[in-house]
């Protein structure tokens, strides 16, 4: 459970930590699109270099990023395997029934793998270096135009920030309850699938109970402090767009332009 780094903030003082959350959010979304621009090997190399640069600048150890990929590794490998086995074309190395291993398939697999992993790495850079509250502030700002269509943007962002805020608590609590049940002789991750599911009951029931309680307490506290859903709220933390944020956006633009140019050259 401790291995999960989703939604965990890694305190630090790096350049990336100090970027405006709006810049980082836009960067993350843009990067997902840009990753698909890499259409040939030099483009792929550029994509990896850019990702590693962002990771290095974040000041968070490489091993932490690897941990971020780990929960998804089977999905990635499965996709890669599908590409290798089912895409034909180019030089064929092995042919066996419906399966073919071809140069074209391997190439596609490398591309898919690279896109997957760079996207995960890059978005992990953003989530690791941005406090959840800042992330929601950024998100709220970016969703502002939706107000025109009567989307309850502020309420949504409040919900998201509460949900994000309690992820670490929930994980820590899960760990604590698992330890407590272990102390009573429970063994996790052993036996048949059915048995493994059964032993989760003593974890999830207390977890649900405490989450519901906490939700109710939180609602009461918010009421007491005068929270009203429909009220216009000002923000305690003001976001400031600085020069470095513009530079980071330009860097992304340069990456996109570079990939596009490499595509045209090839």
């Amino acid at each position: 459970m401790n291995k999960l780094i989703l939604g965990r903030y890694f305190p630090g003082n790096s350049l990336i930590h100090h970027l405006d959350p709006r810049a980082k959010l836009v960067a993350a979304i843009a990067f997902i699109l840009i990753a698909f621009l890499a259409g040939n090997v030099p483009g792929l190399v550029l994509l990896w270099l850019f990702t590693f640069l962002a990771m290095a600048l974040s000041g968070v150890g490489f091993r932490i990023y690897l941990r971020g990929v780990r929960p998804l590794i089977w999905l990635i490998l499965f996709t890669v395997l599908l590409q290798i086995l089912f895409i034909s074309g180019g030089r064929t190395y092995v042919e066996w029934g419906p399966f073919t291993v071809s140069s074209f398939g391997i190439e596609t697999a490398v591309f898919i793998f690279s896109r997957f992993v760079t996207i995960i790495f890059f978005t992990t850079v953003v989530t690791l270096t941005t406090r959840p509250v800042d992330l929601t502030d950024g998100l709220t700002f970016l969703m502002r135009p939706l107000r025109l269509f009567h989307v309850p943007v502020d309420e949504l962002s409040m919900m998201v920030s509460i949900a994000l805020r309690f992820i670490p608590n929930l994980l820590d609590e899960t760990q604590k309850i698992m330890d407590a049940q272990r102390a009573r002789g429970a063994v996790f991750g052993e036996g048949s699938l059915f048995h493994q599911m059964k032993v989760l009951v003593p974890i999830f029931l207390p977890l649900f109970a405490s989450s519901l309680n906490r939700g109710e307490e939180l609602a009461n506290v918010m009421d007491v402090r005068g929270y009203r859903a429909e009220a216009r709220r000002s923000s305690f933390r003001q976001l400031h767009w600085r020069g470095r944020d513009t530079i980071s956006m330009l860097a992304l633009l340069a990456l996109a332009a570079g990939l596009a140019a490499l595509n045209l050259l090839a």
Binding site: E173, K176, I177, D179, A180, Q181, A183, R184, G185, A186, V187, V201, P202, I203, L205, P206, A209, S210
Partner: peptide, 25 residues
């Protein structure tokens, strides 16, 4: 081992079932 706030580990629908959890394990 009795943890801090051990009541957070209670999960069963009756007190008896919860107490039996340890011995059964």
């Amino acid at each position: 081992l009795v943890f801090q706030f051990p009541e957070s580990q209670i999960f069963a629908e009756t007190v008896e079932k919860d107490i039996c959890f340890g011995p059964l394990n």
